[in-house]
Simulated scan of single mutants.
Amino acid sequence: MLCSCVSDLQWVSKVRVNTQAVLKRAQQIQGLKTPKKQWQAAWLLKAVTCIDLTTLAGDDTPSNVHRLCLKLMDMHNKGVTTAAVCVYPARVPDAVKSLKAANSSLPVASVATGFPAGQTPLETRLQEVRLAVSDGAAEIDIVINRTLAITGQWEALYDEICQFRQACGDAHMKTILAIGELGTFTNVYKSLVAMMAGSDFIKTSTGKETVNATYPVAIVMVRAIRDYYLSTGHKVGFKPAGGIRTAQESLLWLALIKEELGDDWLHPHLFRLGASRLRCCLLCFSDLLQDDQFI
């Protein structure tokens, strides 16, 4: 998808977020009852299918990525698969090679654009996207230039993301807002310029910030997604990432999406969970295998 024709940034400039209303709604979401017994097993299974299985460590090696892919294929042989494998650009060839050897069609996602800080020159960030795509990445997780957002340069941010969109080509583009560094809920909402610029997803965090995925910020982001859909008819996906560690938390994120966006978003093409390495994934999977109703 190329950049949207919706470039009326006056929409963005007029936005104001009611903080108290956001916090109240987030409390309501956290108080929702989660499914039990066989229904819980079904929802946990759905959570697993929406996970981007991720390794973004400084000591990642080809063998680490290969082992990650092998573990994924072991799960696949048991009838469970995640949405994608996410790695650094330098590790994309390793992941593609391992999955190809296992005859897997699972997509490889790559972070890019100077992840996690996004503080490298624009041309360097663009080239990183191009290289990841040429190496076989089917999805690219970009980070925004937070300086542009914090200082209110929304048109410049829009232009940058449009360039990333073009560099991605046919690859899906997830745009990471790094919400813990944007300062206000209003800045988070105004980052809907990422949707205007052609993002397939908006994502809360890199997982490297002090504050990552939180329910109040998620409310602001999914409301922006809903408003954008009502204005344009185009559905943009949502990905919370960072700090999601338990099966119970994954159920609550699914409940939030169902409540705020509806059933259409409860699928991997519109909802992903960011899970560092295997923590969330294995917790969900373990719960499934131990559930009598599932077995």
Rank of each mutant, 00 (worst) to 15 (best):
L2C: 02
C5V: 13
L9W: 04
L9Y: 04
V12D: 05
V12F: 05
Q28D: 13
I29P: 07
Q30E: 15
K36T: 15
K36A: 14
K37S: 14
W43R: 15
L44V: 13
L45T: 15
K46A: 11
K46M: 12
C50N: 13
L53T: 07
L53Y: 08
A57F: 13
D59Q: 12
T61H: 00
P62H: 04
N64C: 11
H66Q: 15
L72W: 06
V80P: 06
T81W: 07
A84R: 04
V85Y: 02
Y88P: 05
V96Q: 01
S98K: 09
S98Q: 12
A101H: 09
A102F: 07
L106N: 00
V111E: 04
A112K: 02
A112L: 00
T113S: 10
T113P: 09
T113E: 05
Q119H: 09
L122W: 00
L122C: 02
T124H: 09
V133Q: 07
G136V: 05
G136C: 02
A137M: 00
E139P: 00
I142A: 15
I144Y: 02
A149W: 06
Q153V: 08
W154I: 07
D159C: 12
I161S: 04
Q163R: 15
F164M: 11
F164E: 01
H172E: 01
K174L: 09
L177D: 04
G180M: 08
L182M: 03
G183R: 13
S191I: 06
M195K: 04
A197M: 02
D200A: 08
K203W: 02
T206W: 03
T206V: 03
N212F: 01
N212P: 01
P216Q: 06
P216N: 08
V220Y: 06
M221Y: 05
D227V: 09
D227K: 07
Y229C: 13
S250V: 06
L252I: 08
A255L: 10
A255T: 09
G262C: 04
D263C: 04
D264N: 08
L266V: 08
L266E: 03
F271S: 06
R277Y: 09
C280H: 11
F285Y: 15
F285P: 05
Q293Y: 12
F294E: 04
